[in-house]
């Protein structure tokens, strides 16, 4: 039996009078890729925000690798090994690609006042080392990206920005990666390309656990080991893509068929 890495039990999130998550149970095993689908407003992003500490959890609990993370601040949850991307990209567009990736490395970098001001040689060496790490990671997504390491993120195309955002989440080797609709704003071809790269990374890091929110069913079918369907903040169905897609309840609620 595989241990579950993420274990959410009865998660409740309310915004004023609206219940966005209504007792959601969801567990994800180590190394698994779970596709999270559901209509707009069904609570998918809220689930991510609850897990990463950006919205208050009003009931239930979440555990990561057996340790409780309910109610922790976002930065503490990041330190436990959850990394995420955002539906509306949150790159720091005025900074270089490198600096964006280094935000992903924040928890491993040396922030001592003394060493920052006086140990400049050590900083230079750290930059060179980190640049190598960054180039290797970027190269896994696109051969052209490493050469643009020191360009501003603003200069990148949409797909490259997505790639950089995913790299930023991957660079510190998180236990759990949360991808919030990576296909948003991209063409189907670009999405397919991004998923190929993601699967390649997954193949090299078998322990990496991924939860992916997607509207694009082709993406879900291709990358996920298991599918969870949300509706009104609850789990509507769960199973392989084929099972879920065939489920009449899901078809009625989500695919709009009757």
């Amino acid at each position: 039996m595989t241990a579950s890495l993420l274990d959410a039990r009865g998660l409740v999130v309310r915004f004023g009078g609206v219940t966005a998550l209504d007792g959601l149970d969801l567990s994800v095993n180590t190394g698994e890729t779970v596709g999270l689908i559901g209509p707009n407003g069904s609570g998918k992003t809220t689930f991510f925000n609850a897990l990463t500490g950006f919205v208050r959890i009003a009931g239930g609990r979440a555990q990561l690798a057996g340790a409780d993370i309910t109610g922790l601040e976002p930065r503490r949850i990041a330190a436990r090994g959850i990394a995420r991307t955002f539906q509306r990209l949150r790159l720091l567009l005025d900074l270089s690609v490198f600096d964006n990736l280094m935000l992903g490395q924040h928890l491993t970098l040396d922030h001592g006042l003394w060493s920052s001001v006086f140990a400049r040689g050590r900083f230079a060496a750290a930059v060179r080392g980190q640049a190598e790490v960054a180039r290797t990671l970027l190269a896994a997504f696109s051969p052209g990206l490493p050469a643009r390491l020191f360009e501003p993120a603003r200069a990148l195309t949409m797909i490259d920005r997505r790639r950089v955002e995913i790299c930023r989440a991957l660079i510190r080797d998180p236990a759990l990666l949360l991808l919030d609709e990576p296909s948003a704003g991209m063409t189907p071809d670009e999405t397919a390309e991004l998923m190929t790269d993601l699967l390649a990374v997954k193949a090299r890091r078998p322990a990496l656990t991924v939860v992916i929110i997607e509207h694009d069913m082709a993406v879900i079918e291709r990358v996920s080991d298991r599918c969870v369907v949300l509706d009104y903040g609850r789990k509507l169905a769960e199973g392989s893509y084929a099972e879920v897609a065939a489920d009449p309840v899901v078809r009625r609620a989500y695919l709009g068929e009757d």
């Binding site: 500490g53 976002p74 955002f86 949150r90 720091l92 992903g104 924040h106 928890l107």
Partner: peptide, 10 residues
């Protein structure tokens, strides 16, 4: 530049 993104990375 972005408190939310910053907090998400610790």
């Amino acid at each position: 530049l972005d408190e939310t993104a910053a907090a998400a990375f610790g």
